[in-house]
Lab assay of single mutants.
Amino acid sequence: MAAGGDHGSPDSYRSPLASRYASPEMCFVFSDRYKFRTWRQLWLWLAEAEQTLGLPITDEQIQEMKSNLENIDFKMAAEEEKRLRHDVMAHVHTFGHCCPKAAGIIHLGATSCYVGDNTDLIILRNALDLLLPKLARVISRLADFAKERASLPTLGFTHFQPAQLTTVGKRCCLWIQDLCMDLQNLKRVRDDLRFRGVKGTTGTQASFLQLFEGDDHKVEQLDKMVTEKAGFKRAFIITGQTYTRKVDIEVLSVLASLGASVHKICTDIRLLANLKEMEEPFEKQQIGSSAMPYKRNPMRSERCCSLARHLMTLVMDPLQTASVQWFERTLDDSANRRICLAEAFLTADTILNTLQNISEGLVVYPKVIERRIRQELPFMATENIIMAMVKAGGSRQDCHEKIRVLSQQAASVVKQEGGDNDLIERIQVDAYFSPIHSQLDHLLDPSSFTGRASQQVQRFLEEEVYPLLKPYESVMKVKAELCL
């Protein structure tokens, strides 16, 4: 049975990233139509530049190519590739079939990587351009969430054990800070992308030097003109047959890092959902379990974690691919890159769409948070109580021993009897502590235990987050809708 299948058929496997999760716009960027249309555009740009620099290419040939950029006979191309065992030459023939007058000058002087690699770089750039505003929107939604809850005390956790208090907004800023680093890295790697350009079979530009009869300047002009037509500021000066596969490492490393950030955020949300302090959106008709109707599973956060793990592992592909590119190139890269580049971007696209949807509907339960604080705060307040007693004339050592005994009794009630923490009640009825009984409410005010959390939130948002989001103001209103 021949390899390949009808990918629109229910009898043929289709990647869930495309069929179930990723956005239509990201799927289109990695589609065959987008790819092969870009090949034709690159052939047109090459012909236009070659004509401008004096090669015998007519206006009629150029116009014929322009008129057929979208006229792609995919069936013919597939048949040609089956016959020739070469995808680029299959599309040269297919393009030439609908451009008979231009057929002889299509791909003039070029090698397969002229269309293959340059198209990949265009796709990487455009895919990054799709991700950047999506990530900015996630940051914006979380920034709104953090600002609104900047002063809401909550129990902090280290080692997932109760620690000092923080605020809900401050905790959210930990998430935002990681995503801001990801946004900066995505922008950097996007701006650092260079075009492969017009380089020939081993990167020496020998074929173009021959076409222009040894004119170095025209060869350099050709490279520059096509690079500018493709919208790049610069091209690699040095290439082998391909652009260095280190570029793929750079791009997928940034995406993998984004995956790590999203995994951490969504894990926190899942843990908070278990504590009943916070939940992701839950639709009115949504079913959490087929057997347990009360369940409210954090399905979206779980999906993000599941896909983020996949995204983090994909960076190993370009690392290994770059390491086995012998001399000017081997074909070890080809099949692998067809999979890992598309999957990385479709996965990143999915987790950003999902995280935006989550961040637009996060639900906080202040009463649950308050109750958990009441359970733990008495123990945390013991040092403040000791200091207040010393100020009232008591002995630190005597007070410490009193607190120690009462704390152990209260802990026994919590752990052995399943009761509430009654340390404060014990202190309130103990005559030894009568000098500070009137101060206990103040000493137990949760806001006095959150330090500068709310001020940190305000400063972080104003100095770091809002300036970073400013270039994306025009796209901030787009909502994230999930079908599944």
Rank of each mutant, 00 (worst) to 15 (best):
K233D: 09
S334F: 01
G418H: 01
E250Q: 09
G54M: 09
V478H: 08
S438D: 08
M316R: 04
L132Y: 14
H97P: 03
P162L: 07
Q63L: 12
V138I: 14
S434P: 06
N384G: 06
G451V: 04
L346T: 13
F36L: 13
N126G: 13
R337T: 01
A150Y: 15
N118A: 06
A3V: 12
L319V: 08
R20G: 00
D430C: 11
F433T: 07
F30C: 09
R296H: 05
R196Q: 14
R300C: 15
F145W: 11
L352C: 08
F379N: 03
S289F: 00
L307F: 15
F95S: 05
M278N: 03
T158K: 03
L377F: 04
A230M: 02
E425C: 09
S253L: 11
T202K: 03
L319W: 02
V219N: 06
P293Q: 00
A342C: 13
I57P: 04
Q205A: 15
S9P: 11
E79D: 14
R296A: 07
F379V: 03
Q286S: 02
Q184V: 10
Q416G: 12
C180I: 15
G5T: 15
C98M: 10
L121I: 10
R396M: 03
K82R: 12
Q61W: 06
R171V: 00
A348F: 04
I106T: 08
E50I: 05
V465Q: 06
I269K: 00
E81Y: 01
N297Y: 04
D215C: 09
I358M: 15
Y34S: 13
V262L: 10
F212I: 07
N68L: 07
Q221V: 10
E250I: 07
H310Q: 07
L362I: 12
L252T: 14
L132M: 12
T239I: 10
P133W: 15
I176H: 03
P293D: 02
R40T: 03
A22N: 14
S261K: 01
L186T: 13
R452A: 14
G96N: 08
I424G: 13
R371W: 02
L307M: 15
M278G: 04
E462G: 11
V189Y: 08
V247E: 09
R245F: 00
A18Q: 11
K367C: 08
A230L: 03
L155S: 01
H91I: 03
R374L: 06
G419E: 14
A90G: 15
E250K: 09
A335H: 02
L84D: 14
L352W: 03
A291L: 03
A49C: 10
K75N: 11
F195C: 13
M89N: 00
D178G: 05
Y13T: 15
E81D: 08
